[in-house]
Write a protein that binds this DNA or RNA. Structure first.
Lengths: 212, 212
DNA sequence: AAAATAGTGTTGCAATTGCAACAATTTTAC
DNA sequence: GTAAAATTGTTGCAATTGCAACACTATTTT
């Protein structure tokens, strides 16, 4: 399994502080369910989640909510990664969060001034972005499955691979999982029951076991 | 509308040749429908499409094909952006193609050796990756729509925005569009007819006009 | 120019899915 | 520790979707 790439990989504590200072970073705290507003007027701001979890979500005009991406410690988000006219997208804290904001343009500038740390941070940024691309790809692959059954089975397979075991714990609530798979919750529950009846999976209290 | 970021942005012809040579790049030609094999044994290979178009596609075990991403000139692809165990994914030329391969690790190495061009190329790489993230995000947003009708309308809106007009040409065949939206083609055709009957869109020979 | 291949347009029918609505349970907040 | 809020589990029913099959047209290939 691919290791989770970290934005501060290979940079010592002191150097992290130094470069964050050089880049004139800001660190802010957010409470659970709070919307993480950023890039107000600015451009190319990168938010680094230092502590806690947050989701990138979309609210439909009819109030329907869709989780686009879930993020945790060492994950990043940025207006750079979002379409300019996607105003209905927002980052929402799902636990209390600590977020550091840096300006990408400053980081690039530092790379041309013999700063030794900046290129490492830039490389790490690319690694984290690669990982993000992979995650979004996985999501796309999930969503292209044509039935709820296929989506569930594929999701379980992915989780199984991640856990490197046929048994793993669901860290989503069923409500959230339905959102993630973009299907009706009750229809998903019905299909989940079918999968259990067909002895393809076991589900003991959110602990899933793949039986095939 | 966001400009398409180019991997060679702000680098002169001569410098492009120079850096490609330094990075020991390889350029290969592919014919339409040919599979673009890369990273055989290697890691962190970046493919740059110099000419032509290619798709990132998945073949299901039952032969069903799904377009994950369509790519054109100046687009890039890489094993870095793909899950390690996604062996069923492949890049396939959809026209005759010219592709240059570079090694990411070499590029990083060059950045620490006072090479003036390498950091620019690296910045461009980030810009292109950002764009790719946005594209995949758009795709996710499309796929999370719950009905064929919604998917079509949303797709048309996106294309309208891109063209900056209510009228634009479909550059997909309907067969491919169905693949892209991940729905049954005949069901999509039916829904397309409904949209026309409801006077929400006009469709004259692949020239779509949004009527609302 | 003919043949082969790929794409378009349509339909009936069966299966899947979403919606609405509800009770029961669990978790969170004060 | 109780009230409020969120989640789970279930069902009937209607709407949407996928499948299969077909005729027809357009585009390549040789």
């Amino acid at each position: 399994m691919l290791e989770k790439q970290k934005i501060y990989e290979n940079i010592g504590e002191k150097d992290i502080k130094k470069i964050l200072h050089t880049l004139q970073s800001t660190t802010l705290l957010y409470k659970n369910n709070q919307s993480i507003a950023y890039s107000i007027g600015n451009r190319n701001i990168i938010g680094i989640i230092e502590e806690g979890n947050a989701n990138l979500i979309r609210f439909d005009f009819d109030g329907k909510r869709t989780i686009i991406e879930e993020m945790s410690k060492d994950d990043i988000f940025s207006d750079m990664f979002l379409s300019t006219d996607s105003s209905e997208l927002s980052v929402v804290a799902t636990t209390n969060c600590k977020v550091t904001f840096i300006e990408y343009n400053e980081l690039i500038k530092e790379c041309t001034t013999n700063n030794k740390i900046a290129p490492i941070l830039l490389n790490n940024l690319i690694q984290v972005m690669s990982r993000k691309l992979i995650k979004r790809n996985e999501r796309i692959e999930l969503l292209t499955r044509r039935s709820i059954r296929d989506k569930l089975l594929h999701y379980f397979e992915l989780e199984g691979k991640k856990a490197n075991s046929k048994t793993f714990n669901l860290n989503y609530s069923y409500t959230d999982l339905a959102d993630y798979l973009s299907v009706d919750r009750s229809a998903m529950m019905r299909e989940l029951k079918n999968l259990k009846d067909d002895k393809l999976i076991q589900d003991i209290n959110k602990k899933i076991t793949i039986l095939y």
